[in-house]
């Protein structure tokens, strides 16, 4: 018999998914239930809000770096 696992399906572009994978890895794999493909994954429902917050913070930093191209970027390479 197949198994059913409760969760939230996230469909997003690959760049967003890459960030989610990194957040999951850095937190000791506390978010992702199943990595399905380049644009799709399932995460734990109780962790979704927290994941979105962390994602938002990272996206904000990325956007700030893009805007401040004149100043030296903090992360070379």
């Amino acid at each position: 018999m197949p198994r059913a696992v409760k969760g939230v399906l996230i469909e997003c572009d690959p760049s967003i998914k890459a960030i989610i994978l990194k957040i999951d890895k850095d937190s000791g794999h506390g978010y992702i239930v199943e990595d399905l493909d380049d644009e799709t994954l399932v995460v734990k429902e109780p962790k979704l809000a927290e994941l979105k917050l962390r994602l938002e913070k990272i996206l904000e930093k990325t956007q700030m770096l893009e805007k401040d191209e004149e100043s030296d970027p903090e992360n070379p390479g």
Partner: peptide
């Protein structure tokens, strides 16, 4: 940039 759906895998 992302779409979420609650359910079962």
């Amino acid at each position: 940039r992302m779409k979420t759906t609650t359910g079962f895998l």
